[in-house]
Design a protein around this nucleic acid. Structure first.
Lengths: 159, 159
DNA sequence: TCATAAAGTTCAAAAACTGAACTGAATTTG
DNA sequence: CAAATTCAGTTCAGTTTTTGAACTTTATGA
C-alpha cells in the first residue's frame, strides 16, 4: 500500500500511518517531546539513524507541519522545533508507552511519569471520557465509522 | 537501530516501536479490532499487502502474543484472533485516529465515533487528569522518566 | 589561524518489500 | 463423486529502502 493508497481510503488510522508509520518517525518525535532534542546531530547520536535517512525524515516531518525549522539566534544553523501538531502526539506516545510498560516483556523497562508543569503533581492518562468529564471504562465503548452504526461490517473498506 | 538496540534502551516507546513500528502492523491491528477481520485473506484483500510479508507480520504478531492462531470449528484452517494485549492497543489506535482527524489535511477524512455502549453518547479519547479527577490541558504536562525530575537532560539516553 | 564540530550529501552494499507465479490442502459446485 | 475454486500460504526475481562510511561545506573555538 503506497501513500497514495492510504489517502484513497480516508481512514484516520491509515492517514496517521502515512505520516508516522515507519521505524524512526515516532522515535524522533519522542526525542523532541520527551528529551527536548531539536538538533540534527542530537537526533542522530541519540537514535543511531543513518544521516541521509534522518535528513529525509526531518524534511518529511517539516513538510507535514510536525516540526518547524527555526533559525538559531546568532547562528546560521537551525533547530527542529515541534509544532502544535507534534505536541498533539503526546497522547499517542503516552498511550504507546503505557501499553509497552504493561505488555512488553522487558523486566527492566522504564516508567514514564506524567506531571503537571505548574505544580509537579503526578497526572494520570485517561482514555475515555464523557462530555461532563466522567470516565468511561474501555470495554464500555463502541467504535463506529461515521454514518454506520455497526462496528463490524461485511464490506471491504474500513472507512 | 536494530531491535536489539531498542531493547537495550528500556524505553517504553522504543519497545512499542519494536513490536509495532512498521507500515503494516497497526493497520492489521486496526482491521482486527475495528472491522473484526481475522483471516489471512481478509487482511490481504483489505490492505493489499504482499502475501509473503503478511505471513511474516502475522507470525511476528503471534509470537509477540498480540494475535492468537485459533482453529476454526469444523475446519483445519484457523483465524488470527486478537488477544488482550492486542485489545489494549485500542486506545493507541484511537488516539492516532483522533490526531489524524484533527491534523491530517485530508478534507474527506472519515470520522471514527467512539460511543458509550449503553447510551450511545460520544466519548473523547485521551486526556490528562489530576488525582481529584479534574482535567489537565495537554500542554500543561511534562513527561519524565522514572527517577528523574528534569524533563530535558544533557545525557545521551532516553530511558 | 588551525582544528574541530555541525549539518548535511553521495554512493555502494545490504536488507526489506512488491508482485506474480506456484503449491497443496479444503471447500464448494455440478 | 469429480472438477473447479478458494484458502493459506511459499518461492523467487526485481525494485525500493535503509545502512554505513566517506566526503563537503559552513561555523565555531582555542
Amino acid at each position: 500500500m503506497t501513500t497514495a493508497n492510504y489517502q484513497k481510503h480516508h481512514c484516520p488510522i491509515a492517514q496517521a500511518m502515512a505520516e508516522l508509520g515507519d521505524q524512526w518517525t515516532l522515535l524522533i518525535v519522542r526525542d523532541a517531546l520527551l528529551a527536548g532534542r531539536s538538533r540534527f546531530s542530537e537526533f542522530q547520536e541519540s537514535l543511531g539513524i543513518s544521516r541521509n535517512l534522518l535528513t529525509l525524515r526531518l524534511t518529511k516531518l517539516c513538510d507535514a507541519g510536525i516540526f518547524e525549522r527555526v533559525p538559531i539566534a546568532g547562528s546560521k544553523r537551525h533547530a527542529y522545533v515541534p509544532t502544535q501538531k507534534c505536541r498533539a502526539l503526546r497522547v499517542v506516545i503516552l498511550a504507546m508507552g503505557e501499553w509497552a510498560e504493561k505488555w512488553a516483556n522487558d523486566p527492566h523497562i522504564h516508567h514514564l511519569d506524567v506531571l503537571e508543569k505548574t505544580t509537579g503533581q503526578p497526572v494520570t492518562v485517561g482514555f475515555f471520557r464523557r462530555e461532563d468529564g466522567t470516565i468511561v471504562e474501555p470495554d464500555a465503548v463502541d467504535i463506529v465509522r461515521h454514518g454506520n452504526q455497526k462496528p463490524d461490517h461485511g464490506g471491504k473498506d474500513l472507512s
